[in-house]
Simulated scan of single mutants.
Amino acid sequence: MKSGVKARMDRIATDGRMVNIPMDHGITIGATKGLEDIESTIDAVTRGGADSVLTQKGLASRVHPNKNGKGYVVHLNASTTMGPDSNDKRMTGSVLEAVRAGADAVSLHLNIGSDHEPRQLEDLAKVTKEAQEYGMPVLAMTYARGPGVDEHDEKNLAHAVRIAEEMGANIAKTAYSGDAESYQSVADAVDIPVIMAGGDPQSDRHMLQNVRGAIDAGAAGVSMGRSVFQHDDPEAMTEAVSSIVHNGDGVQAAMDVAGLSQ
């Protein structure tokens, strides 16, 4: 691993473990709860133990003063729920723009199995090539998502993360398969860190059970958006997640530490 990539990876992780809070959803679903005053949310989650936050490039000036010295990831593609196909992610930035925005890493979303997969693979190839020139880590969000595709099947997820590694990404993010035993085959499919996507928000206990299962399976961490930034107490939820990822706590211990009751 090149020294620049390693240095930046260290800024978005703690001893190789990662709690990332993506907040690029303003393009997708608008200025929803937790994103209107994104400055306060960024401050809360980074105080709660997040290693990094993630936004689109245009919010960089709102991120840096509030991230408490933690890492920053700039996301490079997007779609909206108002458009004809939310799986049709299109490029919204470049690695160079992310460098100028003060990013420590870049990320790209791919829907493997969708009609848009071929172009998104080309986009990832371009991003990883450009990132190498700048020593910039690439987080590939490779989801198994398309017509007739089971989004939580471990074989599909393992294929998705393997694509990330094969194309030169440094970290692979994908959905949870539902249990630690099946998710281990996902983590074992690659030699790069795998981090679990939060998915649709559910109860605090359920989300933390997923986190515990992913870590038990060998995942390096999590990237959880709506279940954290839309939470009534984003700092507490981040603290609970971080206590599992970084301290190895169980679900109940994590809830007790953070003062969660659900």
Rank of each mutant, 00 (worst) to 15 (best):
G16H: 13
S52M: 15
D88I: 06
R11A: 13
R162K: 15
S177M: 04
N156I: 03
A158T: 02
G48M: 03
V127G: 01
G250A: 08
A13K: 02
G248A: 12
V149N: 05
R100A: 14
M18G: 01
H25M: 08
K126N: 11
P84K: 12
A253H: 08
H206N: 11
V190M: 10
G213I: 03
F229E: 00
G199E: 10
D200M: 15
G34H: 01
H159V: 08
G48C: 08
L110G: 00
Q209P: 03
N156E: 12
P193Y: 05
M82F: 15
T14L: 09
N111K: 03
A172D: 05
H231K: 07
K2Y: 12
A160F: 02
V190S: 06
L108W: 01
A217E: 02
I192Y: 04
Q56T: 12
D51P: 05
H109C: 11
A50V: 04
H25G: 02
K126V: 10
N111R: 06
G148I: 10
V149G: 05
P147R: 09
K155G: 04
G213K: 00
V149H: 06
R17V: 01
N20T: 08
P137D: 04
E166C: 12
S203K: 12
G71P: 03
L54T: 03
V5Q: 03
L110K: 02
D43L: 10
G146T: 06
V222D: 02
L96R: 15
M82C: 14
L157N: 00
S242V: 05
K70R: 15
V74A: 07
A217L: 06
G148H: 11
H206W: 14
E166Y: 12
A175G: 07
A240W: 01
K173R: 13
D204V: 07
E122M: 15
A78C: 09
T238G: 08
E117T: 10
V63Q: 08
R100H: 15
I112M: 10
D115M: 13
H231W: 07
S182R: 11
A50Q: 02
L260H: 05
D233Q: 11
M91N: 10
A253V: 09
M91K: 11
E117Q: 13
I42F: 09
N170D: 15
N66K: 12
V5L: 09
D179R: 08
G221M: 06
V211N: 01
I27S: 04
D15M: 08
D200W: 13
P193R: 02
D115G: 12
Y143M: 07
K126E: 11
K126I: 08
D37K: 14
G259W: 13
S242T: 09
I21K: 01
R162G: 10
S223A: 15
A214E: 04
L35S: 02
G168P: 02
T238L: 06
A105C: 11
R145A: 04
L59N: 03
K33T: 15
K126T: 08
K70Y: 09
V19D: 01
L110D: 00
A160Q: 01
A105K: 00
G250F: 07
P193C: 12
M167S: 11
N111G: 07
A217H: 02
E122R: 15
Y183F: 15
P65R: 11
G218K: 08
A175E: 04
H206S: 14
A217K: 00
Y183R: 04
S94G: 12
K173F: 06
